[in-house]
């Protein structure tokens, strides 16, 4: 088993994970909640950008395009910030922080495109996104604990999606911080680190799939209840 094979495997597994999320969400898009729809769009964006990157690597014989990666990280962060904005209902401070985070990300993205190209912008952009998303996921967990829902947390879709975000961005935070250092100094090991990132991303997708499955289950249960009420009436 070569490194190249493992790298490809990780690449396809994360692609498959994103595809699975998009499939689950878009199969019954109208019945999904706004938050789940956002997650579906994140997965769709991920598929499109991964495909673009693979296309440029294989067919155009080009190297990894930073522009595609940066744009993807920026779009993903905006979508995930929207996800948290929707979840922080009745919490003005949290919503304000999400808006500030989106503005910060946008500012960094502008700097990526107009700033000094030798500066490690990808590390700044992705680690800022990671830190902010870790902060929001912890805040959402704090909100969950404070609100104390009566149902089992493990049956709540938001819990799984938030846990996936916290898990993935915590694990990849160090990688995001040191990405440019790895790319420049440990050039030969870059593939290994990126493979590690891809496998984590595949796990992230799988945990989100559990959340979507739970959302589907809840949706079916509420539909069953309303059907029963109709038959009684």
């Amino acid at each position: 088993m070569t490194i190249e094979f493992v790298k490809n495997l990780s690449n396809y597994s994360q692609w498959l994970g994103s595809f699975l999320i998009a499939f689950l969400v878009f199969r019954k898009y109208s019945s999904c909640s706004k938050e789940i729809k956002i997650i579906g769009i994140v997965a769709l964006v991920s598929i499109i950008f991964q495909s673009m990157q693979n296309f440029s690597l294989h067919f155009l014989n080009m190297l990894y395009l930073n522009a595609i990666g940066d744009c993807y990280v920026y779009l993903e962060s905006l979508l995930l910030f929207t996800f948290y904005y929707l979840l922080f209902v009745n919490n003005r401070i949290a919503r304000f922080l999400v808006v500030v985070a989106a503005i910060t990300s946008s500012s960094i993205y502008v700097l990526v495109n107009v700033g000094d190209p030798s500066y490690p912008w990808y590390a700044v952009l992705s680690s800022t996104e990671g830190a902010l998303l870790i902060l929001f996921s912890v805040m959402l967990f704090f909100k969950l604990v404070k609100d104390l829902p009566q149902e089992n947390l493990l049956d709540m879709p938001v819990f799984w999606i938030n846990a996936a975000v916290l898990f993935f961005y915590s694990c990849t935070f160090m990688l995001s911080l040191t990405m440019d250092y790895i790319a420049q100094i440990l050039r030969n090991d870059f593939t290994i680190f990126w493979t590690f990132h891809n496998f984590l991303r595949a796990c992230f997708c799988m945990v989100i799939c559990i959340g979507i499955w739970k959302a589907r289950k809840l949706n079916n249960q509420s539909n069953d209840k309303s059907n029963k009420q109709h038959s009684i009436g």
Binding site: V138, L144, V145, A163, L166, F167, S170, C171, F173, M174
Partner: peptide
């Protein structure tokens, strides 16, 4: 560093579940 981050994340998730 990654292991510490992972452990922190897992401990937060487990804390939330058991606290609730």
């Amino acid at each position: 560093a990654t292991a510490v981050m992972l452990l922190l994340a897992l401990s937060i998730i487990l804390f939330v579940i058991f606290y609730q």
